[in-house]
Design a protein around this nucleic acid. Sequence first.
DNA 1: ATGCTCTAGTTCGATAGTCTGACCAATATA
DNA 2: TATATTGGTCAGACTATCGAACTAGAGCAT
Lengths: 149, 149
Amino acid sequence: MTSQLSVGVLMFIAARDVENRVIEAMRRAGVDDITVAQGRVAARIGPHGTRLSDLAEQAQVTKQTATALVDRLEAAGYVERVPDPRDGRARLVRFTAKGEAMLPVARAEEQQVEREWEQHLGARRMRDLRESLTLLREITDPYQEPADV
Amino acid sequence: MTSQLSVGVLMFIAARDVENRVIEAMRRAGVDDITVAQGRVAARIGPHGTRLSDLAEQAQVTKQTATALVDRLEAAGYVERVPDPRDGRARLVRFTAKGEAMLPVARAEEQQVEREWEQHLGARRMRDLRESLTLLREITDPYQEPADV
DNA sequence: ATGCTCTAGTTCGATAGTCTGACCAATATA
DNA sequence: TATATTGGTCAGACTATCGAACTAGAGCAT
């Protein structure tokens, strides 16, 4: 085992930790029927609903995968599909009241993780980390924000 | 869509990019039968072989998952299992010549990605990023290095 | 030395994730 | 109007992942 892991692996380890902790926190709060993959999609749903195709693009999975993941979230009662008034073909995926209720749990844990990271790294490093990651997103995220948000 | 993504999501996006790019580079080089999940395990195999249970622990998956992933890598000819001289129960998973041959491809792409990141961020930011990620690993990676490596 | 506990790796069964190909209907474009 | 593109779903197939269970080897206590 080389003592010097690549930045990609280090990044993966940290990201994995956050995801697992958020899922765990939700389990402890009684939301135990959401998987990591479902959570990745759910986390992309905007406040007024988001198209399935947009979710797929954000999560960088195929439409079919997004369909399947949303199917499960819908079956579990966290999201619903409603027609998109701007396009007769499209549907908006939005949170149900049940879904809205779980969001604060996830958000709180994310913030808890970030506080612990900041405690470990120091405020300056944490700030720099966020800035660097935000910059990196410019070249690592294929997703392009819809023009009319 | 909130304009401020959590650090966890930003981290995930960057890590995903690296993984996808490495897999793509290997595809272009003719290694088109390794999946991302298999690559995650393969990347943990040490120079003299690594125990399956160690791989599982590093990758934070169950032994069964690691077994299945190694099964596939073995079937594809990239790794082999040999007895571990230090423990009659254990096997070491090590690269075959075919597996050894693919490593430089993955490494080269990882380094190419890092160069591009450094170009985008600047040398200082990149150095800080690596340092912060290394520090974060202390609190985000449950894996403990074996005492006798 | 013996008995018990723990561990390495495998098998089985089941579920979730993921993709390609295909399809239909709505929308956009020439 | 005809054609191309797009949104979402279905079908089929493969991969990833986990819990449960099991066997054999190793570790530990007596």
